[in-house]
Nucleic acid binder design. Structure first.
Lengths: 287, 287
DNA sequence: AACAATTACGGAATCCGTAAAAATT
DNA sequence: AATTTTTACGGATTCCGTAATTGTT
């Protein structure tokens, strides 16, 4: 058996032509590569290099060897990929979120990895790290990057908050509004909106929020009243919100606080189990 | 990249079922295999074993991994074989001999490796080791095994000496003769018969040997005289000896000295270059 | 009690980097 | 002078074996 690091040096050499360039590419020193190629020849017991004092090149056999070495490395990499992919598709992973947006997005995906189990109850922000480390969840959708020794995050997409106003109110003609302009109004709000709850309460002065536990109550009231309600670019995809017979106009809110970036956070050691999920979500969010 | 020794341990484990048996098969200790499989899981970042205090077994993913690991090892071995075979078939190897028999045998082969160059001038016995070590010859056919640090030998076959006697002499009716019985006779002998020259001179008392430099002279004289001459099971295959119009009878010589074992000797480091030649010769000598 | 797996620890082998040398362009 | 390869030496990492531990059959 020939060690992989020797094959890697050979393949790299065949691409770059000198031991010096090979060493630089592999981020080792020249003597390391010199010794490696000497050892490779010794292990194979075949002369694969023509050597001159300051020039070295592959023999015909060496060229063949480099080509074959690439196949061995490919096979090894394929081994890793195959085993990890098999494991990933046969391990159910629990996915949680601190906000409803990403959850709605998840449910709307056509290609959710079939091993993903989505938890619809929103998680509290301050237990995220704990939930990941004790493996309660394999991945959690968060509104902050988490970068610790064991956890990392990847950006998924942004959610933008809008307010849906009766089309006869004066604000309904604007291209965007500020939280400040909504001062003192009363809003119909779905109770379980996670992170957003705090944001609207903190940013709209003197407002009243008529929280509804049930979606049905929410839709009924919006339909037969003119209370404004909130939606986002993501929630719009949901069928929970009224779309027909709605006399309201959707106006984006322009404050910074109305835009929220979402990340998927997971244990570094579990990365291979969640890559498929990451890919699906980043892809879907773009649309 | 996953190190090959880990893959080898995995494949062996999947065959033998316990770490203990795996360790024994691979001629290492149990802790080595334990650590190896821990490292493999760690490198792959996939759980491939179910562990109990006293028992360990492969998960479904582990079974797949073992199967795939075998392919990686096969590919690696194939790499070695391919490179060595290519080198062997593109490197001319010089083949020498200390006796004519094996040379005649070599020339009669239909499938001499086409990279073999046969030297028809016989070599002296006492320079064989030197000739191999300074690479003057890649392989030499010898009548003795050579086993040094750098050289090894493989048995090829035996050559048996016979004497061809005029059918009217009284010895011609025997099934075999001894050297002693040939005492005082005169023989026609090809001059360049290597090792055999010494043997007939040493073993036949008071004999006269009429050495002939040229094959033509030898065949002419045998044809038009009744001098006995020597042949062997190997030389018979040669067209240098008369076969038609020969009034002589071939009688085997029964002394031990009339049987000579031949070996092919080569540098251990060159083994892969001469294996094809070895196979061809041992195969051919059987017939 | 016997067996299988694991952990702890010390030694051995391997691999790597720094420094220096040799030879070419 | 600058570049490339190679050798020599010392240090660091990795890998292994012995001995001891844990837990099961």
């Amino acid at each position: 058996m020939i060690d992989n690091y020797l094959l890697e040096e050979l393949v790299t050499f065949s691409k770059y032509g000198t031991l010096a360039a090979t060493a630089e590419e592999l981020m080792v020193t020249q003597p390391t590569v010199t010794r490696g190629m000497q050892k490779l020849e010794d292990d194979l017991n075949v002369k694969i290099f023509d050597r001159q004092p300051n020039r070295i090149s592959l023999t015909k056999t060496g060229i063949l060897a480099a080509k074959e070495a690439q196949r061995v490395l490919d096979q090894n990499q394929n081994f890793i990929d195959t085993v990890q992919a098999y494991e990933a598709s046969h391990t159910t992973i629990r996915v949680g979120s601190v906000a409803p947006g990403p959850i709605i997005m998840l449910h709307s995906l056509d290609d959710i990895p079939d091993n993903a189990v989505i938890n619809d109850n929103l998680l509290k922000q301050d237990t995220v790290i704990e939930d990941l480390e004790n493996r309660s969840f394999a991945a959690i959708l968060t509104n902050q990057e988490i970068m610790t020794d064991s956890i990392e995050s990847r950006f998924i997409g942004s959610e933008h908050l809008s307010v849906n106003l009766d089309k006869f109110t004066y604000l309904a003609n604007k291209n965007s509004v500020k939280f400040e302009e909504l001062k003192g109004m009363s809003f119909i709000v779905i109770n379980d909106i996670g992170i957003w709850k705090q944001i609207i309460q903190d940013n709209i002065p003197d407002a009243k929020f008529l929280y509804q536990e049930q979606y049905e109550a929410f839709t009924e009231i919006t339909k037969y009243s003119s209370f404004p309600y909130f939606s986002t670019n993501v929630s719009k995809a949901s069928n929970h919100l009224p779309t027909q017979n709605d006399d309201r106009v959707k106006i984006p809110i322009s404050d910074d606080a109305s835009t929220m970036d979402f990340y998927i956070s997971y244990l570094k050691t579990q990365k291979s189990q969640v890559t498929q999920l990451i890919d699906s979500m980043t892809q879907a969010w773009k649309q």
